[in-house]
C-alpha cells in the first residue's frame, strides 16, 4: 500500500497547496485570535476530508480504473484514503494544538481542561466528516457521493431543528453554542466528551469497513 500512499502525498502536495496554505492561515489566525472556535476547528476539519479532493482527481485522471490493474486489493485502495486523511488531519490537529498551547501561555490563561476540550472537539469533528462522507463517495463516486452526503446532513440538520422547535433540544444546549466562543467548556463534562469520542471512533471504523464493502462491489 506504500505506493498508493506515496501517490496520494505527491498529489496532496501538488493539488492541495491552496488548502494547505489556507489551513496555515487559519492556524495563524487561531494563534492570534481569542478562542474563536471556527478558526480553531476549520484546519483539522478540512484536512480530514482532503482525500475526497484526491478521489475527485483520481476519477478525472482515470486512476480509479488504472489502480484496478495494479497489485492492490480494493480494501487497500480504500484504506490508503483513510490513512491519508488521518495523516493530514493528524498533522493539522497537532499544529492547532501546539498553536493553542503557545497562545494560552502567551496570554497567561493556560488551562489544561480547556486545552483538553479543544483537543476532544477537534478529534470529534475531524473524524466525523470523513466518517459520514467517505462511504457515500466509495459507493457512488465523488459527484453522487457528495450529493448524498449533503442530503444526509440536510436531513439530520432538519431533524435537529424540528426537535428544537418542539422544545426537545434547548438552544442553550452547549453543542448549539459552538458557533462563536468556547463558553460551553464549563457546561459539558470531559467524561461525556470522552464517551462521544469513543462513539466517533466506532463510527469512523464502521465507516472504513462500509467503504471497503461498497468499493468491493463497485465496478471500475
Amino acid at each position: 500500500m506504500n505506493g498508493l500512499l506515496l501517490k496520494d502525498f505527491y498529489m496532496a502536495f501538488e493539488y492541495c497547496r491552496a488548502f494547505l496554505l489556507m489551513v496555515s492561515v487559519f492556524i495563524a489566525v487561531s494563534f492570534f485570535g481569542d478562542d474563536n472556535i471556527f478558526f480553531i476547528i476549520y484546519p483539522t476539519l478540512i484536512s480530514g476530508i482532503l482525500p475526497m479532493t484526491l478521489i475527485s482527481y483520481d476519477e478525472r485522471d482515470k486512476w480509479t480504473q488504472y489502480s484496478g490493474t495494479l497489485p492492490y486489493s480494493k480494501s487497500q485502495i480504500v484504506s490508503s484514503k483513510y490513512i491519508t486523511g488521518l495523516c493530514l488531519g493528524g498533522f493539522s490537529f497537532i499544529l492547532t494544538m501546539l498553536a493553542s498551547v503557545v497562545r494560552m501561555n502567551i496570554n497567561g490563561v493556560f488551562s489544561l481542561s480547556k486545552l483538553l476540550f479543544i483537543g476532544i472537539l477537534l478529534f470529534i469533528l475531524g473524524l466525523l466528516g470523513p466518517s459520514l462522507l467517505f462511504p457515500f463517495v466509495f459507493k457512488y463516486g465523488t459527484e453522487k457521493g457528495r450529493i448524498a452526503y449533503y442530503l444526509i446532513i440536510g436531513v439530520l440538520w432538519a431533524g435537529v431543528m424540528m426537535f428544537m422547535s418542539i422544545g426537545f433540544v434547548n438552544s442553550d444546549t452547549p453543542i448549539m453554542n459552538i458557533g462563536s466562543k468556547l463558553v460551553f467548556i464549563n457546561t459539558v463534562s470531559i467524561s461525556i466528551a470522552l464517551i462521544i469520542c469513543a462513539v466517533v471512533i466506532a463510527l469512523y471504523l464502521m465507516s472504513w469497513y462500509l467503504s471497503i464493502l461498497f468499493y468491493r462491489r463497485r465496478e471500475l
Binding site: 505506493g3 506515496l6 501517490k7 505527491y10 482515470k62 486512476w63 480504473q65 488504472y66 490493474t69 497489485p71
Partner: peptide, 22 residues
C-alpha cells in the same frame, strides 16, 4: 489502458518511485 490512468500532476520520476513501491 486506453486512458493510461496516470495522475496528471505526476512526472515520470515520481511515477517510477510509486511503482517501485507497488
Amino acid at each position: 489502458l486506453d486512458d493510461v490512468g496516470i495522475p496528471e500532476c505526476l512526472n515520470s520520476k515520481q511515477v517510477g518511485k510509486i511503482m517501485s513501491h507497488t
